[in-house]
Design a protein around this nucleic acid. Structure first.
Length: 543
RNA sequence: UGGGCUAUGGCCAAGUGGUUAAGGCAUCGGACUUUGACUCCGAGAUCGUUAGUUCAACUCUAACUAGCCCAGCCA
């Protein structure tokens, strides 16, 4: 699937045409402090696909300049997710790989007189900054001599100061209407062990300083990020220029991807996990890539979803139906179609002999390469509870009712004659008769059934657990706390039956359960304890 | 009240001065159907508003309106 036209692709085409660049080099720069979610997929797919289409490449660079928040466990999870999506970074790098160079560039800035060590406390820095409408005040330390700054900065590096005691700031413009330019801090002191560099450093560069330099060092041509960095672009360019970087990368911003019924904030996802609302970051209801993977989503469907939503400078909220549609499209021709009954009622065919019959049935008539299996048929079968109503409610009803004839798919026409009830009035079982002349494949066409329903033969049926999911969040509008908006039905487990051919399914195997949806074999499923996750339902024009 | 960004059908999104304004999702008709699935046909916008520039504007300009972002020693 080609990436469709978008403004960044257009820029790249022009840049190549005008020889502004020799090739396209992008990077995906996650901070290793959280799991990747479907929103990140837009950045991943965009960076990798764009570079690929222009015969360029993409680096994976962990943006690990803040050791208080980062952890190597996330590094591994992120690598795994990217690999799952089918992308291979040209290089796997860390922002921390560049700490020495970054330090030296900071020294250069001091030497040029455009950076200074500031003694203001965090609170003071904040109050000196001014407000959105009033300019800031210059720090009293702004005009220290280059020598003093050099010495102080060296001492910062050497651990002579405590956290927060001093910062290195860029000397730009305290009265700029763009607050990012009001002498931004570029180095801060943090005495904590870094997941990569250990205790080697106690000063760490800020994103605004480190990021453009990293991009430049790596030869990144198009540095893509989200809209909230628009105001930072001038700073990005400023650092590249002031540091006299030989390679000049350019930043382009695009809108974030949101999905209806889906909340992707780190804080929220973390809360769900920590409060035990979900079973972990890979819970099948989670919008994390790990969660979607466990749910059964294919990486191809994620990619085609991202590609089909396009890209613009708008933070968009795409309908979750679009994601579901991508999955169905991907799976429709690829999966075996088998019969499963999620909410069974037993149906006894009173005039059928005491035997089982073997129906030879291809797995997917649209893809014969998938082969075929034997589907058993017999006197007792399970059908879906929702496929029966005592009295046909209206002329649109295409299922079973008393006195109504339907076809058990690929078997026979049956007619329901009697309902046996439990004491509580619920249906226990149905009694029906079949017409031997209506055998599927016999060419019988004297009458049309009222509909076609699926079944599983009772004796050979395998018991199975089905996990049925709904969005974690119910009401979408509201300003109410997210925890109060949880959907109590987000995970429903039902016990039913499945045809015997599915007995030796492997973990992660995907199926279409005819008329029920696309399912994936859960990681915990095993022979004798089959567990399936419903990825998405089939589309339905019924109701 | 400062600065920045955005505004094309219900949701995304092409379109870069002259096209009947692509496409996908959703919706509504209809055909087909041993999945109310798939597939196939068909239906819908004058492009936030108002002025302007131009022979010609969704495409350029201005104003207005609405939404989003920015005052972390987070990224």
């Amino acid at each position: 699937m080609e990436i469709q036209s978008n403004f960044i692709k257009t820029i790249m085409e022009e840049d190549i045409k005008n020889k502004k660049v020799d090739g396209i080099i992008t990077r995906f720069p996650p901070e290793p402090n959280a799991y990747l979610h479907i929103g990140h997929a837009r950045a991943i797919v965009t960076n990798f696909e764009l570079a690929r289409q222009f015969d360029g490449y993409t680096n994976l660079r962990f943006d690990d300049t803040n050791p208080v928040k980062e952890d190597s466990s996330f590094v591994d999870a992120i690598k795994e997710d990217i690999k799952w999506l089918g992308y291979t970074p040209n290089n796997i790098l860390f922002g921390s790989d560049y700490f020495e160079q970054t330090y030296e560039l900071a020294v250069r800035l001091i030497q040029k007189g455009v950076a200074y060590v500031c003694d203001l406390s965090q609170e003071q820095v904040s109050s000196y900054r001014g407000t959105l409408t009033e300019p800031g005040k210059e720090s009293p330390y702004r005009n220290r001599s280059v020598e003093e700054n050099l010495l102080l900065f060296k001492q910062m590096r050497d651990g002579k100061f405590k956290d927060g005691e001093k910062t290195l700031r860029a000397k730009i413009d305290m009265s700029s209407p763009n607050i990012n330019l009001r002498d931004p801090v570029i180095y801060r002191i943090i005495h904590i062990t870094h997941h990569n560099t250990g205790d080697k450093w106690c000063i760490y560069p800020m994103y605004d300083f480190a990021h453009p330099l990293q991009d430049s060092i790596e030869g990144v041509t198009h540095s893509l990020c989200s809209l909230e960095y628009v105001d930072h672009r001038v700073l990005y360019d400023w650092f590249v220029e002031q540091c006299e970087m030989p390679h000049i990368p350019h930043q382009y911003e695009f809108g974030r991807l949101n999905i209806t019924n889906t909340i992707m904030s780190k804080r929220y996802l973390k809360q769900l996990v920590e409060k035990g609302v979900v079973k972990g970051y890979d819970d099948p209801r989670m919008p994390t890539l790990a969660g979607l993977r466990r749910r059964g989503y294919t990486s191809d469907s994620i990619k085609s979803f991202i590609l089909s939503t396009g890209l613009s400078r708008i933070n968009s909220t795409v309908s979750s139906e679009m994601l579901e549609n991508s999955l169905r499209n991907d799976l429709v021709g690829k999966t075996k179609r088998v019969y499963a009954i999620l909410d069974p009622i037993k149906l006894i065919i009173t005039n059928y002999p005491d035997q089982t019959e073997a129906i030879d049935l291809e797995y997917n008539p649209e893809n014969l390469e998938l082969g075929s299996r034997i589907l058993p048929f017999g006197k007792e079968v399970y059908i879906e509870r929702t496929d029966f109503i005592e009295e046909k409610p209206n002329k649109h009803w295409k299922r079973l009712s008393l006195g109504i004839e339907v076809r058990l798919m690929h078997a026979y026409f049956i007619k329901c004659n009697e309902v046996i009830y439990n004491e509580d009035g619920s249906i226990k079982e149905l009694l029906a008769t079949y017409d031997v002349l209506t055998k599927s494949g016999s060419g019988f066409n004297e009458r049309k059934p009222n509909g076609n329903i699926h079944f599983v033969e009772a004796k050979t049926a395998l018991p199975a657990t089905f996990n049925l999911f709904e969005p974690l969040m119910v009401d979408s509008d509201s300003d109410r706390d997210m925890m109060e908006r949880l959907n109590p039905n987000s995970w429903k487990t039902v016990q039913g039956f499945i045809e015997p051919s599915v007995g030796n399914t492997f973990k992660g195997e995907r199926f279409q359960f005819v008329r029920e949806g696309y399912f994936a074999t859960d990681y915990d499923s095993k022979e004798g304890n089959l567990i399936f996750n419903r990825i998405v339902e089939l589309k339905s024009s019924y109701n």
